[in-house]
Simulated scan of single mutants.
Amino acid sequence: MMDFALNEEQLELQEMVREFVEKEITPYAAEMDAENHMRDGLIDKANEMGLLNVIVPEELDGPGLDSISVATIYEELGKGCAGVATSLAANSLATVPVLLAGTDEQKKMYCDILNNGGLAAFALTEPGAGSDAGGVSTRAVHNKEEGTYTLNGTKMFITNGGLAEIFLVFANTRKTGGIRGLTAFIVPKDTPGFSVGKKENKMGIRPSNTTELVLQDVVIPESYRVGREGEGFRIAMNTLDSARPFVGAVSVGIAQAALDCAVKYAKERRQFGQPIASFQMVQGMLADMAMKVETARLMVQKACWMRDQGMEFSKEAAMAKCYAADTAMQVTTDAVQVMGGYGYTKEYPVEKMMRDAKIMQIYEGTNQIQRLVIANKLLY
């Protein structure tokens, strides 16, 4: 049976990450947001804490954590700064395809980089292909005699694009395109013809590095193809199923942090001779916020538990991601409302949380796409 309580190891892990966040992330979150990048040395410190390879199994020299433990880590990171959480979680997103469909050699090559403190990136989105993965136009031409593939195309909105050492790139091996030709490839950053384009200036998650990628006659060996030709769509969808509860966990972290700020402020702020926490309208808002956060957390935990049990969890993953992301947006908006004019200023962190929350409804499948996934599971 599923246990709603974290076990002793998970509680120790949670406390360890919480202390790291309170010391190394939260005090610098506003500064990193303003400067549009993570502060120097933070990735190295995160690596020392074992936060870069949380998805790597024991047999590949990783921690071998269960999904609920991973979600617990990302929730704590989300409380401190969703931008930092996004960059670290991108390592998991980019690694799952290799763990799902890669060869033993590919798994070792990929995971060794993470185990040694490197970052990875998942490169699916393009200027003309976001929710529609079948619209990927990056081409991969098979040079059978040479035993290589030549990749040409442009990717965009790639988390860790300018920082990663290794990339999981989706390209089409069919001239006619479509999902039947979508194929996954490993591309190391130093491959000739591979370059990083412009860095995005985003509304939220600003410390997270987000860039364009350009592939111009990038030649890689056949051994860097992950799975068979045409398997890329299945690999991508299974990867997103696995990653969506973790997006939900970051969303829960954002929402919990915003709720904590609103509760603290409501107790301290006085109007009409009493704390605003004594007003029933404010109490009602805080109660609704708390219920949504707790519901989102439980949905994330259930999806993670189902994943670890080897159960079909695509619908639950979509539900967890969608509900938690919507919750983060609603709770951060309500936190700003509770705090009034102060909440709208950068003197308090809730305005940043509100900006950060918005992307949770967009990346790794928009919440509209999540609803289609859920409906498809219900109807077919």
Rank of each mutant, 00 (worst) to 15 (best):
I158G: 04
V282E: 03
F170C: 01
F170Q: 06
P221M: 07
V218I: 05
M291P: 00
T103H: 11
E222V: 14
V187R: 10
E8V: 08
H37F: 11
A123E: 04
K198D: 13
V300C: 03
T103Y: 05
L240I: 15
Q370I: 06
Q280E: 14
A266C: 02
R269Y: 15
I68S: 00
E294N: 11
G128E: 13
E200N: 11
A318M: 08
L124E: 06
G130M: 12
K358H: 13
A328D: 06
E146Q: 13
G310L: 11
T72A: 10
A277G: 03
Q280Y: 09
T26A: 09
F194L: 10
K108Q: 15
P63W: 05
I68D: 07
Q330P: 03
A320C: 07
L114H: 09
N47Y: 15
V218A: 03
A129L: 12
K377G: 12
K107M: 11
K144L: 09
E294F: 01
T345I: 01
E8C: 04
L13W: 03
N7S: 07
A258P: 06
S92C: 13
P221N: 06
G273V: 09
N209H: 12
F170V: 04
L100K: 08
N201V: 12
P349Q: 04
C261Y: 05
A290G: 05
G130F: 10
K264P: 03
E145Q: 11
L182T: 09
E76I: 03
N172P: 02
G177E: 15
N116E: 15
Q274H: 11
R234S: 14
K377P: 04
H37K: 15
T138S: 13
C261H: 09
K144M: 08
R139Y: 12
D3Q: 14
L51H: 02
I179L: 14
R244H: 10
Q274Y: 13
M156P: 04
D61L: 08
G117E: 07
N7T: 04
A320Q: 03
K352M: 13
I220K: 05
F167L: 06
T191H: 11
V56N: 02
M1E: 13
T154W: 03
T95L: 09
N209V: 14
E35C: 05
D308Y: 08
E59A: 12
L163D: 13
E165M: 01
K377A: 14
F194I: 10
T366E: 07
S242V: 10
T154F: 11
A171C: 09
G117W: 10
V169W: 00
K189L: 09
F122A: 08
L93A: 14
L11W: 04
G128L: 12
T176A: 14
L168T: 15
V17C: 06
G62C: 00
A34P: 00
K264C: 07
A5P: 03
Y110Q: 01
I25D: 02
E294R: 01
G83T: 01
P245C: 08
K155W: 13
T173D: 05
I369G: 02
E212G: 06
T332L: 04
Q256K: 05
N160L: 00
G310M: 13
L60P: 04
D104G: 01
L163A: 12
G365N: 08
I235T: 09
L182E: 12
T176C: 12
T103W: 01
G64H: 02
V21P: 07
K346P: 02
G273W: 10
F313R: 02
E165A: 02
M353D: 07
T210H: 11
M319Y: 07
H142T: 00
N172E: 09
D61P: 08
Q337H: 13
